[in-house]
Design a protein around this nucleic acid. Structure first.
Lengths: 157, 157
DNA sequence: TCAATATATTTCGTATACGAACTAATCTTA
DNA sequence: TAAGATTAGTTCGTATACGAAATATATTGA
């Protein structure tokens, strides 16, 4: 951005870039999926259920990177649509087991193909991408564990 | 995630990582700012106005990476609070010029310090970070220009 | 010049997303 | 074994965020 960017601002810049790229992806997926009612968050849920198998809402929360209270209404809609199933666990009635259905699998397969096709057009270097992915995972782990210092407006003019 | 991740899934994985990291940053900033009413999107707006000077809503939209209709209510709240000013441009009454106030500057300065402090604790390699930032910017540019292929559920079982 | 078009912003409807509070089920332990 | 703590999920209130439509202003062209 600026040749005098101090190291203290790198964190801020990373957030900014993540935020802006997140929005760009959001619009991209919205354009790709809009005719179908599928959205990016739902796609992430299907991916998690497909790769890690049936699991509880809170486990899914960890896999998808969103809170359980965000998932709750989404899962309800997806179950109504038929892409997943939701059922109280017999062993522990507090838990709700979520699983992808064959219809959900079919949707996921098609969505993945569309996304793969779209990404191929972006011409992104796979090696660099892999490196960035590992960096982002590392940062995410640290951010999740961190206890942020608190901002205060005391004495604000 | 999986040692057999094919190249066509890298795009999907990048989205997933961006999405999850975005959520992690969101929670981090929420924890850091919650006592003050400042939020991450408002922080981004202050940063953009501070670094690029007063500008219209649509220019700010470009700088902040969100749509103008998202900014509109945010800017109204921030102006009521006193962190920014909003005024119809004299030359062109369609435009609304937005500018940061001294109070907004003060808030930004404090927020930046808190974030810089928090990030220093994360122990992230600055060189690697800089490299990742340039990659993310590059990807964002491509995603924004791209015309995604469209998903369809025709003939879904 | 004045109707057709274009541009800037706001409003509207819908979809995440979070923390806090709530409910229900399970576990602990005195 | 029953009161208290813990855990899982949902509901509630608030804050983004987007596309589409509405509104207001400016520009163009016959």
């Amino acid at each position: 951005m600026d040749q005098t960017t101090p190291i203290d601002q790198l964190g801020t810049m990373l957030c900014f870039n993540i935020h802006a790229l997140h929005r760009s992806f959001g619009r991209y997926y919205q354009a790709a999926f809009s005719e179908t009612g599928l959205t990016y968050p739902k796609f992430v849920i299907l991916m998690a259920l497909d790769s890690a198998g049936p699991m509880s809402v809170s486990d899914l929360s960890g896999h998808a990177g969103v809170e359980a209270n965000t998932l709750s209404p989404l899962l309800k809609k997806m179950a109504t649509f038929g892409a997943i199933t939701r059922a109280r666990a017999e062993a522990d009635e507090r838990r709700v087991e979520v699983a992808i259905t064959p219809m959900g699998q079919e949707i996921l397969t098609r969505a993945r193909a569309v996304i793969a096709e779209g990404f191929a057009e972006l011409q992104i270097d796979p090696d660099r991408m892999a490196d960035v992915l590992s960096f982002l995972s590392e940062v995410r782990g640290k951010v999740q564990k961190a206890d942020p210092p608190k901002l205060s407006f005391d004495g604000l003019t």
